[in-house]
């Protein structure tokens, strides 16, 4: 019953992650969920996936969260939800039950032979891998987005978006009233 226990703890962690008031605490609970899911994956025999999940999900993402929260700062004002909790629970409940209902018969699907993991990942799913590379590139751009504002004051003289905005009104003046000399 180890997996069941792991699962229950993971779900509890997830609930805590949702409930926690402080963002940092929330992020740590999320790391917990990730670690427990990784353990579950390992137990299910998916060793490679487990390792990747542990390192990326529990490690890298948590670091990112901490980084972002420290930059954005805690927003402690309690925000009251717009949607009433019973309504949210009802919607979620209906969806999950319906998925479960639909998924259960699929579990008895016949088993077919298949290729080794490596072959699948690198050959049959080559397109996916390419997409992943693109995704990672997008992620890099995202990180640059976080850091973009930070760099600006450090490099004066380089035209940034805001500086262009400052110039624009004069340009507009020049276009609209060509006779008028720029101050």
């Amino acid at each position: 019953m180890l997996p069941l226990a792991l699962l229950i703890v993971a779900v509890l962690c997830a609930v805590q992650a949702v409930r926690a008031a402080r963002l940092l605490v929330s992020a740590i609970w999320l790391a917990g969920v990730s670690a427990l899911v990784a353990l579950l994956l390992y137990w299910l025999g998916a060793h490679e996936v487990a390792v990747i999940e542990l390192s990326v999900g529990a490690g890298l993402v948590t670091v990112l969260f901490v980084f972002a929260i420290s930059m954005a700062g805690e927003d402690l004002t309690p925000l009251k939800s717009l949607i009433s909790r019973p309504l949210a629970l009802a919607l979620v409940g209906v969806s999950v039950v319906a998925i479960a209902w639909l998924a259960l018969p699929l579990i008895e699907q016949p088993v077919t032979g298949e290729s080794p993991f490596g072959t699948l990942l690198w050959q049959n799913r080559g397109a996916d891998v390419l997409v992943q590379i693109v995704l990672i590139f997008a992620g890099v751009l995202g990180v640059l987005g976080i850091l973009a504002d930070e760099k600006r004051p450090a490099t004066p003289g380089v035209q940034t978006a805001d500086m262009v905005e400052d110039v624009t009104p004069e340009l507009v003046t020049e276009i609209v009233e060509p006779e008028k000399e720029l101050a």
């Binding site: 994956l41 025999g45 998916a46 490679e48 996936v49 990747i52 999940e53 990326v56 999900g57 890298l60 993402v61 990112l64 969260f65 699929l106 579990i107 699907q109 088993v111 077919t112 032979g113 298949e114 290729s115 080794p116 993991f117 699948l120 990942l121 799913r125 996916d128 891998v129 997409v131 992943q132 995704l135 990672i136 997008a138 992620g139 995202g142 990180v143 987005g145």
Partner: peptide, 24 residues
């Protein structure tokens, strides 16, 4: 379903995508 490796390879894809979602 007996397609362990297929499921796992898709899972890896999902991890990467998920991470990028988090980053962005």
């Amino acid at each position: 379903s007996g397609q362990t490796n297929l499921g796992q390879s898709v899972a890896v894809t999902l991890i990467v995508a998920d991470t990028v979602v988090a980053v962005v």
